[in-house]
Design a protein around this nucleic acid. Structure first.
Lengths: 178, 178
DNA sequence: TTTACTATACTATCCGGACGGTATATATTC
DNA sequence: GAATATATACCGTCCGGATAGTATAGTAAA
């Protein structure tokens, strides 16, 4: 297997379509074209649009879960490693964040039940964050503030200057260790 | 004018459709039915779907702006009145919050430029929050944490227990006055 | 009679998904 | 090893239904 599986390629294409062209252009034709496959081929792998979105959410939940977990494990300081990892990953806007947003929007649009894997993720993280030696309330507030950044970026609502964003980032990290 | 203007009724109906049935069901027919009007009547008031969504966003931005401002003015304590108002309104989940979410999602889906009034609102509030006697960084973090609650409720992603939510609320309010 | 509003009928486009095929690889049987 | 069968992966067309938007004729009130 020298390349990503076709399924994963399709899922990435779907995220790309949403990110670049919006939910209303998440059509089977558009995804097929972006993935370089025919519509028939797409439907072979995902028998319906809903199945496609389901796949998107599951895939991104898996990726994100691993990313945060690996990041937390790599931290030499155990205390607060999960909340630190969460803050890190959210602030370091990567392509995964975009995929996350695309998946969230797609699931919310197609069928809110498809958000379940994200709900599970959210609760898992909260569980970790509240049980790693940091005052739970403080940890929760740091987490929520991080989610606030996420909201602003999801809707591109608040053009926070990079410098200011980095300051917030630093303050949140410092708060963890106080 | 003993009743709301027809336009406003239509805008409320549109928000309701999005809240109850999702973005993909924000169709002219569905909005017309929800508003108790014909499709022709709807198109008389809003000549296109985009115009309708534009109307939604402008209307909710106006309402929200007034609501936060009134709340801030009614506060006997000047210091921190805006951030307090912002936290209050966001935590007290009202129908306006639902409308806000519906409008955000609709604008994001139809044409992200339509989010401009929200961008303006966001920056206005930030301006107030950073200049009312509270340490700007602290105020920003409180605001972001509040937005985190907003994100969770927008996607119904985190089933925070009401009790816990109220604790967070209280802690944020207390932080303002520290 | 103008303005504000409503209703109905219709058009053109788009989209999900079904479907009939094709190509290739691997087993199985004789 | 030739012939037959089966599974997997993929392609491109077609169709019914939904939807945005148009055209037009009407009503109520000021």
């Amino acid at each position: 297997m020298g390349r990503l599986s076709r399924k994963v390629e399709i899922l990435n294409a779907a995220s790309k379509v949403v990110s670049k062209r919006g939910i209303f252009n998440l059509t089977l034709d558009a995804v097929a074209e972006e993935a370089g496959i025919s519509k028939g081929g797409l439907l072979y792998h995902f028998p319906s649009k809903e199945a496609l979105v389901e796949g998107m959410v599951e895939h991104l939940a898996k990726n994100y879960r691993e990313k945060i977990a690996n990041n937390a494990e790599a931290d030499e300081n155990q205390r607060g490693s999960w909340i630190r990892s969460y803050v890190d990953v959210t602030f370091n806007q990567t392509y995964e964040n975009k995929d996350m947003n695309a998946g969230l929007l797609a699931a919310k649009a197609v069928n809110a039940d498809l958000l379940d894997p994200i709900r599970n993720l959210y609760e898992e993280w909260q569980e970790h964050i509240e049980n790693e030696g940091i005052d739970p309330m403080k940890a929760t507030i740091i987490r929520l503030a991080t989610d606030g950044i996420w909201l602003a970026e999801l809707f591109d609502i608040y053009h926070i200057e990079e410098k200011k964003k980095q300051e917030v980032y630093k303050v949140l990290l410092k708060l963890i260790d106080e």
